[in-house]
Amino acid sequence: MDSIRESLLKKSKATKKDRFARVITFSALLLIVVVVISIFLFVASKGLATFFTNKVNLWDFLSGKKWAPGQTNAQGQPLTGALPMITGSFLVTLIAALVATPFAIGTAVFMTEISPKHGAKILGPVTELLVGIPSVVYGFIGLSVIVPVMRHIFGGSGFGIIAGAMVLFIMILPTVTSMTVDTLKSVPRHYRESALALGATRWQMIYKVILRSATPGILTAVVFGMARAFGEALAVQMVIGNAPLMPKGLTSPSSTLTSILTQGIGNTVMGSLENNALWSLALILLLMSLVFNIIMRAIAKKGAM
């Protein structure tokens, strides 16, 4: 009796292993959470210093049109208007997403519905390859191909919102496409069968059943692409012209949050207003990526029904 009692009360080897594994996975999770929270705290403390330490008015920051943090205006207030960059970021992102969506849906429909064989053999690997190309390569192509073309068509320098949006469009297209492909593939086969059994043509099946039931997934893909476009720095910086001015048109040199950040962060002194103002831009970026995330979750929840 006692031996049974003892073996029941003593922790077995398997239990110890189980506990060990739990500790390991929990520590991994904890580490990630700590890192994410630290990033937020760090960026927030730096970014908010602009408003608390340097006493910049938040509204002036968000709506001001002049960006020259080293200088002051007539009232002695520093010129930290971030509106040109905010506008630039949103414009390139929206245009890139608008152009990319139809291409992504078209490619995805071809790969899943029209010609799955070619899709799996050629287009699939190609899109995966495109995802892996470093952004500096895209930027370089933009610089040597898109900018000259823009210069030729619209005149001026060729640098600007359109050039940035085009580069971003090419960059996010593979991401949006492959996510759309996954969504279309997850549409159950019986939707296709019953649509055809009801006398729908192939196009009606694609258009009225598959795309319609895949809409939440496609939207998620597009928002995901937008999040990526919004945060992309290098490629955009190479083609947008980096003039911190309100965009006068889509082909005049302008800037985005990221392009100004990468340009300026190495040339300012830690703790100075110039530096803090850049951190405020980073804070906006961080909050925006949070917003994109929330949107994606909301869509996914609604789509799940």
């Binding site: 159950p188 019986h190 939707y191 069968e193 019953s194 649509a195 059994a197 009801l198 059943v209 319609r212 039931s213 029904m305």
Partner: peptide, 11 residues
């Protein structure tokens, strides 16, 4: 027309 084994209305 055809009706399948799994009830499969569209969403």
């Amino acid at each position: 027309g055809m009706v399948f084994q799994q009830p499969n209305p569209f969403p």
